[in-house]
Simulated scan of single mutants.
Amino acid sequence: MENRSCFSLRLDGLTKYLEGLNLQNLALEKVMSGKADCILILLEHEPVLTVGKSGGRENLLVDESELERLGVELQSTGRGGNITYHGPGQVVAYPVLNLGKWKKDLPWYVHSLEEVVIRVLEDYGIEAGRKPEYRGVWVKETKIAAVGIAVKRWFTMHGFALNVRVNKEHFKLINPCGIKDYTIASMDDFVDSVDLHEIIKSVEEKFSLVFKSKLIEVSREWLESGQSEGETRLA
């Protein structure tokens, strides 16, 4: 594996969307300043609908008072794509990368993120793939993972969300990613028992293989500090 400084941070419990966004911004500061080439943040969000730069409020199927009643937030975000859902039982991966250390090629990057998910699912006997007209990962005619990224000067934010055992009723609040013709899948549709922590470890493993980098686990305190990679405090 090539000599790249890649770190991984796993968050326990549920994380508010804006808190996760703040952590991404802290990671971006470290990557842009050269203290790391890659920081992979893995978490579960509290229930939230996020609207991308392409819009998406037209694909919200209920009014905001209904969202409030259900305890689902609505947030605008800087990633590409349309409206999507994050919530408990979904592994969300935010790779903050300096693509200059890999390949300055956005289709390659999106394809690689999808490949990470496809390989995770393969380990669970779930045959998944891509649809040429849509981003994300699909099991036949159902979407099991969404991909939405933001890239500026070849530095990345946002990433992908893999449905493990999600509340599908929340997806009915929207046309996910603006798509009306297909339904949502979750790993527990195909596997009797799924352990979120095991899947997070699998995401780290497959990310390491696809991006040809060894991941070093770090603490949230390290991310929130001004330490450089040589002073990394392991989790």
Rank of each mutant, 00 (worst) to 15 (best):
V116E: 12
V117C: 06
I118S: 06
R119E: 15
L121G: 02
L121R: 05
L121H: 02
D123W: 05
Y124I: 01
G125C: 06
G125Y: 05
I126H: 07
I126R: 06
I126N: 08
I126P: 09
I126W: 04
E127N: 05
E127G: 01
E127K: 11
E127A: 04
A128M: 03
A128W: 06
R130C: 01
R130W: 01
R130P: 06
K131Q: 12
K131C: 08
K131W: 05
P132I: 08
E133Q: 14
R135Y: 10
R135I: 00
V137H: 06
W138C: 10
W138D: 08
V139K: 04
K140S: 12
K140T: 07
K140D: 14
K140I: 06
E141Y: 00
T142C: 08
T142A: 09
T142D: 12
T142Y: 07
K143I: 00
K143M: 05
K143Y: 03
K143D: 06
I144D: 12
A145L: 07
A146E: 04
G148E: 03
G148W: 00
G148H: 02
G148Y: 03
G148Q: 03
I149H: 03
I149G: 01
I149V: 14
I149P: 00
I149D: 02
A150I: 00
A150S: 14
V151S: 09
V151A: 12
V151G: 04
W154I: 15
W154M: 15
W154N: 15
F155P: 13
F155K: 15
F155L: 15
F155M: 15
T156K: 14
T156N: 13
M157H: 11
M157E: 14
G159W: 11
G159L: 08
F160R: 12
N163A: 04
